[in-house]
Design a protein around this nucleic acid. Structure first.
Length: 550
RNA sequence: GGCCCGUUGGAGAAACGGUUAACUCAUCGCCCUCUCAAGGCGACAUUCACGGGUUCGAAUCCCGUACGGGUCACCA
């Protein structure tokens, strides 16, 4: 037994598994040659971030498009920052957006466990073999020592960190290491780097192309003193044994790529392909910065859900920032499923996209406008049940009534686009519910002040005589024009403009008086259809009620 | 500060050595119109952060400067 083996056995006495055992336990995946295996690896520190949704959308699509596998792994090695329960929450939020992994820490899979906290055996096995090969060593330096060293390094203007001559524990003899461990001195495990900081490596990034980066020369920590791996090491072990083909992650990882490359090369494993995704930015005071979980409400996807943005709108927006040619495709395929579009890495933007809420709104409006009445009604109801109880109760009183309201001018080539989000619906249609109409009557009605109360009454009585609700829309309007002209209003605006003095007002004025008296407001969706839904009896009731408060 | 990535209209962005510099959102104007929501048409970068170079020709290639972002942990 050599010295390194002695050290390895001292540190990991219970690890009998070998690298070969693990290779056998996690065989190469049986998938098409070009199929991608991608992953989303959140840490359980909070809610689903908009940037994470973006990253998972891309990872998920890339896998699905290529007939591959998308899985979800929980990176729960930072016990200090962990917020319990948030792992499940993130996965649930993902599923709300239709993103469902093939394997995950909730449903399991053949390449599990999918929680890093349950993969200790794997990390220990790999690290043990690295110790034996002299590629990893224990480091006993305290935080204080490390800190002093950094201060010193900065003072003499050399790169800070644990490398080369500064990697003091690297030079400890194996006997000394064993001795310290026997005396129960706390330690971390470090990777013994053989890189040099003026060496260069060229790497291919699927999005950015060929990159020239400085070699890693740091003896990075791979196992913390609590026995859990750091990100870098977990990435190596997990993505190797989970057989990930494409690492899709935020560009903030770009600078640690040389570490990962060295790790893979050093142990002799095939490097995965990397795609560093743009970060979603936000503009504030003329500066752009990364969306911040703490400062920006829109950083949490729950913000959009609560506000009532449709899932379809959010995902479509994300697709537009993911691939620059998506919008073009959408123009040609207005009703296709957005996932019929083939996402590609080379059409991805390089710098961080500014999160454009106005555009989200425009797209959401488009999506809501394209839904049929049944769909938007169901979805609005689902939203209301979660976020607006009062609204939900009203819908629930008479669902088909609600649906008929939302059906006004819906469908066809150019549907109405009244709503950007589900929360917009109620304020626009509330007058269709009698109690809200009554409420409107308690405030001043917005009649045009040029008309006297007597004129208002005259118009309303005229309308009540022959409301024409049994007619189709066109004839109804003809009838309305006739009614108007009988009492001195011009049947068209044009005629009125030609000779204003000859008329009391025009058809628009005439209709407005009726509209206000029935709805309490100046603006409503298609007037005829609203009245059809209300029915003649309620129209009469409402007009009489309105006149009674003049 | 070191290293890395980036910079095209108010925003997102196309263009991969030769186009009047696409398109979407926003904004503005006109038209349509009983209100609203839509819809139609049009306007909006003499110029691609700046300065040099290469070339018959540069937003596109090279160099420098400026600006913005990322990263330098026993966090991911």
């Amino acid at each position: 037994m050599n010295k390194y083996e002695e050290l390895a056995n001292l540190i990991y006495p219970n690890i009998k598994t070998t690298l070969a055992d693990l290779e056998a336990r996690y065989p190469l995946r049986n998938i098409d040659e070009n199929a991608m295996v991608t992953r989303f690896a959140p840490s359980p520190t909070g809610f689903l971030h908009t940037g994470s949704l973006f990253a998972s959308l891309i990872s998920w699509r890339m896998a699905k498009q290529s007939n591959g596998i998308f899985f979800c792994r929980l990176e729960d090695t930072d016990t200090k920052r962990e917020i319990t329960g948030t792992g499940d929450l993130v996965l649930n939020e993902l599923s709300i957006f239709g993103i469902t992994p093939d394997e995950s820490f909730l449903q399991g899979g053949l390449y599990g466990p999918y929680r890093q906290s349950e993969r200790k055996e794997l990390y220990d096995t790999v690290i043990k073999s690295m110790i034996i090969q002299g590629k990893a060593y224990p480091c006993f330096c305290s935080h204080e020592t490390l800190n002093d060293m950094r201060v010193f390094q900065e003072s003499i203007k050399v790169n800070p960190g644990y490398y080369g001559e500064y990697a003091t524990c690297r030079r400890l003899s194996v006997e000394e290491m064993i001795d310290k461990i026997m005396r129960a001195e706390p330690y971390v495990m470090r990777f013994k780097s053989s890189g040099h900081h003026d060496g260069k490596i060229t790497i291919h990034d699927e999005i950015r192309g060929t990159l020239e980066l400085t070699e890693n020369d740091q003896d990075i920590v791979i196992m913390k003193s609590d026995g859990l791996p750091t990100y870098h090491f977990a990435h190596l072990v997990d993505d190797h044994f989970m057989r990930t083909t494409h690492i899709t992650r935020g560009e903030e990882w770009l600078s640690s790529l040389p570490i990962h490359i060295e790790l893979f090369d050093s142990i002799g494993w095939q490097r995965p392909l990397y795609a560093h995704l743009p970060v979603i930015m936000k503009q504030e005071d003329g500066r752009r910065r990364k969306l911040s979980k703490r400062k920006d409400p829109e950083a949490a996807v729950s913000f959009f859900l609560e506000a009532g943005y449709p899932i379809e709108g959010i995902m479509e927006y994300l697709m537009t920032i993911a691939n620059s040619n998506f919008e073009e495709w959408r123009l040609v395929n207005p009703i296709s499923n957005i996932y019929d579009f083939n996402l590609s890495f080379d059409k991805m933007t390089l710098d961080g996209a500014l999160f454009d809420l106005e555009k989200v709104q425009s797209i959401s409006k488009e999506r809501l406008g394209a839904m049929n009445a049944e769909e938007i009604s169901m979805k609005a109801y689902a939203w209301a049940k979660l976020y607006d109880e009062n609204f939900a109760n009203l819908i629930n009183q008479n669902f088909s009534y609600f649906k008929s309201i939302l059906n006004i001018e819906r469908g066809g080539e150019k549907p109405r686009k009244d709503y950007t989000k589900y929360s917009d619906i109620f304020p626009i249609i509330d007058f269709m519910y009698d109690e809200y109409f009554d409420k409107a009557l308690t405030t001043d009605l917005p009649y045009n002040p040029i008309f006297s109360i007597d004129q208002l009454k005259m118009v309303l009585n005229q309308f009540l005589m022959r409301p024409g609700m049994e007619l189709d829309e066109e004839s109804w309007f003809e009838n309305l024009k006739l009614l108007a002209s009988e009492v001195g209003f011009a049947p068209t605006v044009k005629e009125y403009k030609k000779n204003k003095d000859a008329f009391l007002g025009h058809i628009g004025d005439f209709a407005e008086i009726i509209r206000i008296s029935i709805s309490g407001r100046k603006n409503t969706p298609n007037f005829y259809q609203i009245m059809r839904i209300l029915g003649i009896e309620r129209i009469k009731q409402r007009i009489n009620k309105t006149m009674s408060i003049f």
